[in-house]
Amino acid sequence: MATHLDAQVTAFRQWRLDQGVDSFVWVDALVVKVREDGRVVNALVATGVNTDGYREILGLDVASAEDGAGRLAFLRGVVAHGPSRVQLVISDAHPGLVAAIGSALPGAAWQRCRTHYLRNLLTTVPKAAQPHVAAQVRTTVDQADAVTAQYDHVIDALEPRFRDTAEHLETARADLLELSARDLAPDLVRQPPRTADQAELNKQIRRRTDVVGIFPGPTP
């Protein structure tokens, strides 16, 4: 029924960006059903934020394997679209994905997605304390300056009651504070990309694929 859309989908996946400049790039994975033996696989999404502050989808593809090869092929396809001068890539800490980012975009910094990380962190505290801990951690993101000092303050505040949580934060320090540590463009540091925007995009993709209940696979 959707065969008439194949040409448009192919054009979307092969187009080149006009400006070709995306300072920030998110890479995320959605779990979707695909039209290949009814399997449940990952749909990889790459979203760029250009120097004017506008988001644009750079790539969307299905990866049937959990290894790094599928992710690397996806990212190489994204790079082929023409984004240049990428300063920072944001993703979860899946080893295969991080390695693929390093290979496809060797000049870009990498930062761990704070939303994904926070979900992992909150498993180290009782459910009743999770809103308080989440609010504390988010204060480090809200800082325009002195991010490291606020990060230290949060760790010190959590350590007496939640030692494992404080150690978890300390271990993830370098991954979470890359945006503050790197010498990025000043206007971009003042207005870092919001992970909430990526979450909303993922929600819209799910809402549209849920209409037919299955994501189209690479074969007709």
Rank of each mutant, 00 (worst) to 15 (best):
His4Gln: 13
His4Pro: 09
Val9Arg: 06
Arg13Gln: 15
Arg13Lys: 15
Trp15Leu: 12
Arg16Asn: 12
Leu17Gln: 12
Leu17Thr: 15
Asp18Pro: 09
Gln19Ile: 08
Gly20Pro: 04
Asp22Tyr: 11
Phe24Trp: 11
Trp26Cys: 06
Val27Trp: 02
Ala29Trp: 04
Ala29Lys: 01
Val31Cys: 02
Val32Asp: 05
Lys33Phe: 05
Lys33Arg: 13
Lys33Leu: 10
Val34Cys: 12
Arg35Pro: 02
Glu36Val: 14
Gly38Tyr: 02
Ala43Asp: 04
Ala43Trp: 01
Leu44Val: 10
Leu44Arg: 01
Asn50Thr: 06
Thr51Tyr: 10
Tyr54Phe: 14
Tyr54Met: 11
Leu58Asp: 08
Gly59Ser: 09
Ala63Glu: 11
Ala65Glu: 15
Ala65Gln: 15
Glu66Val: 05
Gly68Thr: 11
Gly68Ile: 06
Arg71Trp: 15
Ala73Arg: 09
Val79Thr: 09
Val79His: 05
Ala80Glu: 13
Ala80Cys: 05
Ala80Gly: 08
Pro83Gln: 02
Ser84His: 14
Ser84Glu: 15
Val89Leu: 13
Ile90Ser: 05
Ile90Val: 15
Pro95Asn: 05
Pro95Thr: 05
Ala100Met: 07
Ala100Gly: 04
Ile101Ser: 03
Ser103Asp: 15
Ala104Met: 04
Leu105His: 01
Gly107Cys: 02
Ala109Arg: 03
Gln111Leu: 05
Arg112Ala: 08
Arg112Asp: 11
Cys113Glu: 06
Thr115Cys: 00
His116Lys: 02
His116Ala: 06
His116Thr: 07
Arg119Trp: 08
Thr123Asn: 11
Pro131Trp: 00
Ala134Ile: 06
Ala135Glu: 14
Arg138Gln: 14
Thr140Gln: 06
Thr140Gly: 10
Asp142Cys: 07
Ala146His: 12
Ala146Arg: 12
Ala146Leu: 06
Val147Arg: 09
Ala149Leu: 11
Ala149Gly: 10
Asp152Met: 01
Val154Thr: 07
Leu158Asn: 06
Leu158His: 07
Leu158Pro: 08
Glu159Ile: 06
Arg161His: 14
Glu167Pro: 00
Glu167Gln: 13
Ala172Phe: 05
Ala172Met: 09
Leu176Gly: 04
Leu177Thr: 13
Leu179Ile: 15
Ala181Leu: 00
Asp183Pro: 03
Leu188Phe: 12
Val189Ile: 13
Arg190Gly: 15
Gln191Ser: 14
Pro192Met: 08
Arg194Phe: 01
Gln198Ala: 07
Glu200Arg: 07
Leu201Lys: 03
Gln204Asn: 13
Ile205Ser: 02
Ile205Met: 07
Ile205Gly: 04
Thr209Phe: 13
Thr209Asn: 09
Val212Arg: 08
Gly213Ile: 03
Gly213Val: 03
Ile214Gln: 09
Pro216Phe: 05
Pro220Asp: 07
